[in-house]
Amino acid sequence: MDWTALSVSLWLGAGTIAILLPFGIWLGRLLAVRQFRGKLVVEALVTVPLVLPPTVLGFYLLVTFGARSPLGQAFHAIVGQSLPFSFTGLLVASAIANLPFVVQPIQRGFEAIPSDIRDAAACCGLSPWQRFARIELPLAWPGVLTAAILAFAHTLGEFGVVLMVGGNLPGETRTLSIAIYDRMQAFDDRSAGVMAATLLVIAVVTLMLTTTLSRRAGFARG
């Protein structure tokens, strides 16, 4: 069992949630309540990672931020590290790959709030921020929860992008799913088996947790 790899995977999952959740709540709500020009384009762009092969994302990240690209060199000069082959790079890739998994459930959550509830809250003299924090967000909570759990589970399972832009560096970019691949290549089926079972258990538990929590959230409201 590669504990370092497990830790990298868990941090990656947590980091992806931390980045995407605030953004997803902002964008999901915007898409749910507002009509604006170009909304269709935004929705399509958000959904693209769902149907895009991970290798395409990996290719563009490498080409854009690799050591041979001007942007990559500029990034290195400013930040002092390169984006590919670093944990930060994985985080960026993971945030992009998980965009639809976060935005869509949150958008559905906000869409499910009847507009008269929002109107009533406005009539009661609540400020826009209070309306959001006290009325809308609690009502959309099951969607937010689903988004967080989906993003976390999906990040743990991410393989293609990580293999391409990560480079299998222990403690930095070797996630659990990469470690399984690595151990298989070393004919170490035992370790690979243990790690595969770990991911399987995490996946099942996460999904059970979603169902339970969203049901409970439903009861609390209903």
């Binding site: 370092t4 830790s7 990298v8 941090w11 947590a14 980091g15 980045i19 605030p22 403690g171 930095e172």
Partner: peptide, 21 residues
Amino acid sequence: SVLLVIVLAAACGPVPAAARP
């Protein structure tokens, strides 16, 4: 601003310390 803080925290955050390969 919340987003910015979180992004920064996550980016510089507690990556498991290991010797660089």
